[in-house]
Nucleic acid binder design. Structure first.
Length: 375
DNA sequence: AATACCGGCGAGT
DNA sequence: TCATACTCGCCGGTATT
């Protein structure tokens, strides 16, 4: 064991504008045009949101989460914009192959999203960033030659720094943050650029006079803890100092959910068909992942886009679509009763969904009946 | 007093 | 006006033991 046994070399890989780039690979003729990947909600012709877009579209002002209608308005004057519906099955199949490729380059691997992964390439001799660079270069080259996709790679001494390296320069880039240069790299950044600090946290920090990561790094621990809690507070300060001990580790799936936008906002439970669909889909996903759930919940998004949820634990773990449907229907029924009781809460529901949690490995019985097979 | 459960919130892709 | 579909993680309140 090296005396620097706690020093690591971590690689982060981020596939560039992933869904849109997948579409460019499928149809290279769209490469020179703005490409916008859309989630059409089905309410009206173009209702829905932009999932992602290629860099040409971004340069013209298209952003993730933007209403499709707005993206169309922005691109109205530019020639040949391409609006495509999201095709998750296709992106997932591409992602699976690439993740296998990355996984094969090291023994500690963690996929953090459909298009991002970490690799711990620390050896018994310690954290050699030269080796990390070589492995990163190989990964970039192989993804390009095999899948025709570019990616951005970052190297750092922990996951946070590798991720910050990736985020510092995209697309098709390779950034290394050397050991010892973490604080200098982070300090001048606005706090909002630090991974896991979003608009709300940024605003809270600004309210106590903290604007840069460097200021957060030396902030008063007690004051930060009082504001963000005794766990999150210290974490924030650690992150601002480039400290992140979290291991590169494949995590078990903890939850799965389905959600849909309703054709019209509703005040009553009249979307049983949608629930049936989602129950079936979730049941299938449970079975294919050899999991069962011990908690079933509902998600309700109101007209004013507030998220509400209800959930309940069930006696025995289940994979049954019928049981998921029964429980979620029950939760929605009581949810509407609550809403109608609570005097003038006239809020309607815009989107509804089901969430399964407390997932546990579940070996499906081989002696199951023919009937249960189809549930 | 510790742990479990629940609902809200925040962040990210 | 125009606001997707997911996943993960933390927080505080309350119930349970």
């Amino acid at each position: 064991m090296s005396s620097l046994g706690n020093v690591r070399a971590i690689i982060a890989v981020d596939l560039d504008y992933f869904y849109a780039q997948c579409e460019e690979v499928r149809d290279p003729s769209i490469k020179e045009k703005p490409v916008v990947i859309c989630v059409f909600s089905g309410r009206t012709e173009d209702s829905g949101a932009v999932s992602t877009s290629n860099y040409l579209a971004r340069k013209l002002g298209v952003r993730s989460g933007m209403p499709i209608v707005l993206a169309k308005r922005i691109l109205k004057t530019t020639p040949g914009p391409v609006f495509l519906p999201m095709d998750m099955e296709y992106y997932e199949s591409v992602s699976e192959r690439i993740m296998e490729l990355i996984r094969s380059k090291g023994d500690k691997f963690e996929q953090s999203s459909i298009d991002e992964a970490y690799l711990d390439v620390t050896t018994k001799d310690g954290a050699d960033f030269q080796i990390a660079k070589e492995i990163g270069t190989e990964i970039k080259a192989e993804i390009l030659s095999i899948e025709k996709l570019t990616c951005t790679v970052g190297v750092g001494q922990n996951k946070l720094m590798a991720k910050m390296a990736v985020d510092s320069k995209k697309p098709d880039e390779f950034t290394v943050i050397l050991q010892g240069s973490e604080k200098a790299f982070l300090a001048p950044l606005p706090v909002g650029k630090l991974f896991r600090i979003g608009p709300k946290t940024e605003e809270k920090l600004r309210s106590i006079g903290i604007v840069t990561v460097g200021e957060l790094a030396v902030a008063d621990r007690t004051e930060i803890s009082n504001l963000f809690g005794k766990n999150l507070g210290p974490d924030l300060i650690d992150w601002a100092n480039g400290i992140d001990e979290s291991p590169v580790l494949e995590k078990a799936v903890e939850q799965m959910s389905r959600i849909v936008t309703l054709k019209n906002d509703v005040q009553h439970f009249d979307f049983r068909e949608a629930l049936e669909q989602m129950s079936k889909s979730l049941s299938e996903k449970l079975r294919s992942s050899r999991l069962a759930c011990r908690s079933i919940g509902i998600i309700a998004i109101t007209t004013d886009l507030k998220v509400k949820s209800r959930s309940k634990s069930i006696a025995a773990p289940t994979q049954s679509s019928d049981e998921i449907l029964q429980v979620s229907s029950g939760l929605f029924t009581s949810f509407f009763e609550e809403q109608h009781l609570s005097d003038s809460d006239k809020s309607k529901l815009r989107r509804v969904g089901i969430r399964l949690s407390e997932l546990i490995p579940y070996a499906e019985s081989k002696t199951r009946t023919l009937e249960s097979y189809f549930k």
